[in-house]
Simulated scan of single mutants.
Amino acid sequence: MTHAQSTFHGGPDALGVPTWDFSTNANACGPCPSAQARVLRADARHYPDPAYTALRASLAAFHAVAVERIVIAGSASEFIGRITAWVAREGGRRVWLPALAYGDYARAASAWRLERTPDPAQADLAWLCEPASPLGQAEPRARAVAASGAATVVLDRAYDPLRLSGQGSLDPAALDRVWQLWTPNKALGLTGVRGSYAIAPVGGENMARSLDRLAPSWPLGAHGVALLEAWTSPDAQAWVAQTRPTLARWTGDLRALLASLGWAVQASDAPYFCAEPPQTLDAPSLRSQGIKLRDANSFGLPGQWRLSAQPPEAQAALRAALAAQEERVA
């Protein structure tokens, strides 16, 4: 699990915010105007309601579930750490992970000394993500894992609102048997505002209460509350839906650009994908020109890069920079 334990992420780095950032999976059409306005209006002079009563009710109504199934989290990463801690505290010893997955699943498991198992039926905690990162594809074993009898199964749905094709592997009945983790800041193009929530399985209300008790006081600040409140609004939902055709067009353009330069481009259901260049990429040179790609080595895909759909001007800058690299190699 060494590669998966990296804290390496896309987005800003020691050099600041990239001018052309292909490394982040945030909605490139963002930020969502109505969500940003609500965040800017947030009253940061006061603590939020420590029980998040109104927010829980809004999220429960939005998903048509009982309010007792809603767990508020500071971020997806915070929830990943918290539910892993709960599983370990309850005597869990084994975790099942997809072959390629977000590194925090493995990092949290390692911190709590959970052993990775190849058999989800033997797992005390199992992780799914659709569309997955880094590939943006369906998880081949999703249905089997959800039906495996693993004690706790979590489906990370961070990128589901940005899905451009395909559909989730789990039907409504299967979804009711697993935890669902939602992180709307990516879809809303506001990743600098941290805030997340999870929906417990049907019958998982007691575990939800236990996870609430494990949380620090006020895991969400006023701005995170505003983000999640905005997420449930018709305006924000309409905006996200309206961005998908644009993201699909930009994704197709980016795939065509890279293919024309000899890259091997993988399939994806999301506005991001992995691709392998025909020769070693000079990433520091690209970064010096304000262009950042996500090195997929930390996901266990050496030689490949994850790129997200970006506007035409960003793609033009990438094309020019890659063409210049090719000329230098030639």
Rank of each mutant, 00 (worst) to 15 (best):
D13E: 05
P18G: 08
W20A: 08
T24N: 12
N25P: 14
Q36Y: 03
Y47L: 08
S58A: 13
H63D: 04
V65P: 07
I72Y: 12
I72Q: 08
A76G: 15
A76V: 03
I83K: 11
W86T: 01
R89W: 11
G92F: 11
R94L: 07
W96G: 03
D104P: 03
D104H: 10
R113M: 08
P118I: 07
D119W: 09
A121Q: 12
A123M: 06
A123R: 13
L128P: 14
C129Y: 12
Q137A: 01
A138P: 07
R141E: 13
R141A: 14
R143Q: 10
V145T: 09
A146L: 08
A150Y: 07
Y159E: 02
L162H: 10
W179N: 06
Q180M: 04
L181R: 08
N185E: 09
L188I: 12
Y197F: 05
A198F: 07
I199G: 03
G203W: 13
M207E: 12
R213F: 04
L220Q: 06
G221V: 11
A226N: 12
A226E: 11
D235R: 14
Q237P: 12
L247T: 06
S260C: 09
A264E: 15
A267V: 02
S268E: 04
P271D: 01
A275N: 00
D282K: 05
R287I: 06
I291W: 14
D295W: 11
S298Y: 15
S298R: 15
G300E: 05
W305K: 05
S308L: 01
Q310W: 00
P312T: 01
P312E: 02
R319W: 01
R319D: 09
L322I: 12
L322V: 11
A323M: 10
A324C: 07
A330C: 00
